[in-house]
Design a binder for these strands. Sequence first.
DNA 1: TCCTTGTTCAACCTTGCGGTTGAAAGAACG
DNA 2: CGTTCTTTCAACCGCAAGGTTGAACAAGGA
Lengths: 117, 117
Amino acid sequence: MDDQLNRVFSALADPIRRDMVARLAVADAGVNELAEPYDVSLQAVSKHLKVLEEAGLVSRTRQAQRRPVHLEAEVFDLMTKWIERYRRQAEERYRRLDDVLAEMDADQTRPDERGAS
Amino acid sequence: MDDQLNRVFSALADPIRRDMVARLAVADAGVNELAEPYDVSLQAVSKHLKVLEEAGLVSRTRQAQRRPVHLEAEVFDLMTKWIERYRRQAEERYRRLDDVLAEMDADQTRPDERGAS
DNA sequence: TCCTTGTTCAACCTTGCGGTTGAAAGAACG
DNA sequence: CGTTCTTTCAACCGCAAGGTTGAACAAGGA
């Protein structure tokens, strides 16, 4: 599960792979189609796809000689959950800090009441 | 803006850096504090922090000899926006596909094979 | 001033990643 | 069968990333 996060984040760390995902969100495509806009070899694109596939971001089905690539959007949830979790935590922390500051401002005789560790 | 995405995604591709972010969501910390749980040198941790800082994920202020590290949660938005955009696009595409299939189903001009999932 | 604590710089090593080229494998079709 | 189209495997190259160690820098406190 942590490995999955490693793979997904590093898969999307590459601009070519992000662009591929962006285009696959519009329509499935074969390797040749996908490779067309980029100035790299077909083999390089094939490698990129392998990375995306191992991250669970795309799947591939055989269809004649072609192997159409299909975006699997569920994995995105893994990332958003991770991100949102810590973002919320951080925001919550700020909120509490504001409370503490406000309390210190209003009532300076009370030391500690909420024993946050 | 694309560079920013590169930096943020690859910063979070490392499990140690993700863990640092997770811990910084709870409380600010100095380098020594942060380094404690990991089995690497202080210098390695310092490098990790530099990466997080260049990605805009953390900021640092001087406070006596210490340089406390502080999580900057806003950058998360950049990622979630990117992710949500394409996830929504993909989901929209499925919805339309369902419509097409429903139409094909109602309009049975081709009683062909569609034996798969 | 010297010493201590906390952090970073510099040099180096090894591994992994993105790129290349060349050859091969899978599947349709003459 | 052999040809053609599409995709992948294998070997290699250059470079950046993550790790190490040793020295340096920054800022109190004795």
